Amino acid sequence: MTAFVTSLGGKLAERWLQALLLPGMVFVGAVAVAGRLGHGRWSDVDMLAAAVDQLGESATRRGNGAVALLAVAVVTGAVAAAALAQGLGQVVTYAWTATWGPVGRPFVHRRRRRWRRVVTRYEQALIEKARVLRGVRPADPPPEVPDTAALAAARDRISMVEPRLPTWMGDRMHAVDERIRTVYDLDLASAWPRLWLTVPDEVRNALVRAQAEFAAAGRLAGWGGLYLLLGLRWWPAAVVGAGVWAVGWWRGRMSMENLAQLVEATVDLHASALAVALGHPVDGCFTPGDGEVVTRILRKGT
C-alpha cells in the first residue's frame, strides 16, 4: 500500500507539473519579456539579453537568499497563472455549452435558419436521388445523382438536430438527448445518474477520460485568453494567444464529439441493464415501450 501511494503521488505530481506548472512558468517568462520590451521594442533581443544578465548578476551579488526568493516568486507566479487559466477554462467550457440567455437567442435563430436551409436541400436531394435511381426521369445523358452524403455532412456541421443552443458543442450534446428520446422514448437527464451506477468500470473510465479531455481543451483556451490579454502590452503574445485559443477550440469540438458518442453508446449498450436493475425485465432489444416505462419509474410520476 505504501508503494502504491508513493507511486500515485509521483504520478499526480508529474501530471501537475506538466499540465499547470510548466505552462505557468512559460507565461511568467512571457510577462517578464512583455514588461521589458513592450510594443516599441518588441523584438529587441539585445535589450532582453542585457536585462537577463543584469538580473542574474544582481541575484548573485545578494547571495543565495535572493536567488531562492526569485525562484519562489517565479513558482508562485506560475501557480497563480495556472490557477487563473484553469478558472478561465471552466468559464470557457461553460460558455461552449450554455444557452447564453437572451444574448444567445440571435445566434440560435441564425444557426436554425442555416440548418433548415441545408435540411431542405438535403431532403430535396434525397427525393431527386430516388427518382434518378428508379429511372423516373430518364434522360440522355443520364442525370447526375445528387451527393446526399455531402449535404448530410453540411447539416451535421451546423447541428445533428434542429439547433437550440448558440454553439455547435452545446447542440452536439443536446443532439444525444434528442436522439435517445426519439429512438427509445427515454429521458436521458433522469436516466443518466442511475445508468452511471450500473455500467462497468471501463465504461466509466472512458467517459471520465473524455470529460477530462474536454476540460483540458477549455483550459488550453483559457491560456489563450491570458496571452491575448498580455498582447495589450506586447503584441506577439496576442498572436500566440489567438493560435492557442484556436487549438483549444478545435480540441474542444473533437473531445465533445468523442464524449457525445460515448454517452450515446453507453445508452445503446446498457439501457437494458438499467431497466432490469429497476425491476423491469427487457425481452430482446430495448424498445420505446421499455424507455417509457423506465422514464416513468425514474421520474416518479412527475
Rank of each mutant, 00 (worst) to 15 (best):
residue 2 T to A: 08
residue 3 A to M: 13
residue 4 F to K: 07
residue 4 F to S: 02
residue 7 S to H: 02
residue 10 G to H: 02
residue 10 G to Y: 03
residue 11 K to W: 14
residue 12 L to F: 04
residue 14 E to T: 05
residue 20 L to P: 00
residue 22 L to W: 03
residue 26 V to L: 10
residue 26 V to M: 12
residue 27 F to D: 09
residue 30 A to H: 12
residue 34 A to W: 05
residue 35 G to E: 13
residue 35 G to F: 10
residue 39 H to K: 05
residue 41 R to Q: 09
residue 43 S to L: 11
residue 49 A to F: 10
residue 50 A to R: 13
residue 56 G to R: 15
residue 59 A to S: 04
residue 65 G to P: 04
residue 66 A to W: 01
residue 71 A to L: 10
residue 72 V to K: 10
residue 73 A to S: 08
residue 73 A to P: 00
residue 73 A to N: 03
residue 76 T to M: 10
residue 78 A to T: 03
residue 78 A to V: 03
residue 79 V to R: 02
residue 83 A to M: 08
residue 88 L to R: 10
residue 91 V to F: 07
residue 96 W to P: 01
residue 101 G to Q: 04
residue 103 V to S: 05
residue 114 R to Y: 00
residue 117 R to W: 06
residue 118 V to D: 14
residue 120 T to G: 15
residue 121 R to C: 06
residue 134 R to N: 15
residue 135 G to K: 10
residue 136 V to L: 14
residue 137 R to T: 14
residue 139 A to P: 00
residue 141 P to E: 03
residue 146 P to S: 07
residue 148 T to C: 14
residue 153 A to W: 04
residue 154 A to V: 01
residue 156 D to P: 01
residue 163 P to M: 11
residue 165 L to W: 07
residue 166 P to L: 06
residue 166 P to Q: 05
residue 169 M to A: 15
residue 171 D to E: 02
residue 172 R to E: 15
residue 174 H to M: 09
residue 176 V to E: 00
residue 177 D to F: 06
residue 179 R to L: 14
residue 185 D to Q: 11
residue 186 L to K: 08
residue 189 A to C: 02
residue 189 A to T: 13
residue 200 P to V: 00
residue 201 D to H: 11
residue 204 R to M: 01
residue 205 N to P: 00
residue 212 A to S: 13
residue 214 F to R: 13
residue 214 F to L: 14
residue 215 A to H: 06
residue 218 G to I: 03
residue 219 R to E: 13
residue 221 A to H: 13
residue 227 Y to E: 13
residue 230 L to M: 15
residue 230 L to P: 08
residue 233 R to S: 14
residue 244 V to D: 11
residue 246 A to C: 10
residue 248 G to C: 09
residue 250 W to S: 10
residue 252 G to S: 09
residue 253 R to N: 13
residue 260 A to I: 06
residue 266 T to L: 06
residue 266 T to K: 01
residue 268 D to F: 07
residue 269 L to R: 11
residue 271 A to M: 01
residue 280 H to Q: 08
residue 283 D to Q: 15
residue 284 G to V: 05
residue 284 G to N: 09
residue 290 D to C: 11
residue 290 D to I: 04
residue 291 G to M: 08
residue 292 E to F: 03
residue 295 T to M: 03
residue 296 R to K: 11
residue 302 T to H: 08
